[in-house]
Design a protein around this nucleic acid. Structure first.
Lengths: 193, 193
DNA sequence: TTCGCGCTAGAAAAGCCTGTCTGTTTGTTC
DNA sequence: GAACAAACAGACAGGCTTTTCTAGCGCGAA
């Protein structure tokens, strides 16, 4: 608990929101587990919604770094890196299932489910974050010499796989998704399986 | 309001849960909009969770009928019907966006997002419903003479497309998904685009 | 050492949540 | 027409929600 209150609030929110959802997580619980006073929260954030936005922002930062690690900082050919992504997702699933917390899918799409109304700040933030992550895929697709609009199909497959892994509690979904992506890539250019 | 109270409760729940989410919808609002007394609700359902389960059940029934209409009751060849599915999803998106209610994605996966803990009755019900819907796709895949395990990939693509259409508010996602499915099918057997 | 700032604890406001209970009215069936 | 079951309205309990407020503690800087 040596870090600063604002930081503890964001980290604790990240954990609780992704585990129990947004509406189901009360502010009192966040404060208790972060060891922060109520006034301090409202000094840093105008409302609970703003705290949610901050937690989503942090989530996007973490996931972006992970995704860039997989897609950019690798010596394998770009199309192979895209296939690797689904093996890494599968490993991520296994790791978070084994720990104290069970795999809870993507916090971004979970937020989209709870805040479905377009125009709501949280919904709009989710859309922006997803678009941002999508552009990383787009870069890798371009690097592979493939048409850029291919990345939309990859995003659908990636989030679809994360979603169904959450529902089914089965990492084999990622292998199915990998086969799908393999078919998508093979359609345009020959790719080693 | 001539239908029976139990029916009105389920229909109103279906509408409110899918529009505003489960935790965000209080039973008082359901009761007011259904025109039903509180005691009547608790005569028919032991708790709010049971009402949620009933609403999900109804949702599955409706979506199953719709899906069977697209995949079974059609004179087009089975692989073509699978491709048609994504055109019909796109039309469904457009229809529900134009009405009073905006498109809110799949109520099943929205429920999975709010009730992420495995073992929770709602989570388990969602998993069972998704499996049931998946078997309809499996039948059509078999009918087309394709390997049955292909249906898992189609399910990922379908739910992924619904999810991203909800986030992006853009029906073009379904065309992307259709291209993906086309690639999946083409990988195994020649299919007219 | 003293000032000021960020933090703490704790209380309180105002409202919504689920679930229970009482009494009345309506509708159906013998 | 009497009897019975179901649905009605409305109040109430107990708890949780977000947000605001007061009062004091502790630490770093001047």
């Amino acid at each position: 608990m040596q870090s600063k209150p604002r930081e503890r609030l964001i980290e604790t929110s990240l954990r609780l929101f992704s585990t129990h959802g947004f509406h189901a997580t009360g502010i009192d619980r966040i404060l208790a587990e972060a060891g922060v006073a109520k006034m301090t929260l409202y000094r840093h954030f105008r409302s609970k919604d703003e705290l949610i936005l901050a937690a989503l922002d942090r989530y996007e930062t973490i996931f972006r770094a992970w995704l860039e690690g997989v897609l950019r900082h690798s010596d394998r050919p770009p199309d192979q890196r895209i296939l690797d992504l689904f093996d890494k997702l599968s490993a991520w699933f296994g790791a978070s299932t084994l720990r104290e917390l069970t795999f809870q899918g993507s916090m971004l799409t979970n937020a989209a489910a709870e805040f479905g109304q377009p125009g709501h700040p949280v919904h709009d933030a989710v859309a922006a974050h997803v678009r941002g992550l999508s552009s990383i895929l787009e870069d890798t697709v371009s690097e592979a010499g493939l048409p850029a609009n291919l990345s939309n199909r990859l995003v659908v497959t990636m989030f679809g796989a994360v979603l169904l892994a959450q529902v089914y509690r089965d990492p084999r979904v990622f292998q199915d998704a990998r086969l799908t992506v393999s078919a998508i890539l093979r359609e345009t250019a020959p790719v080693p399986a």
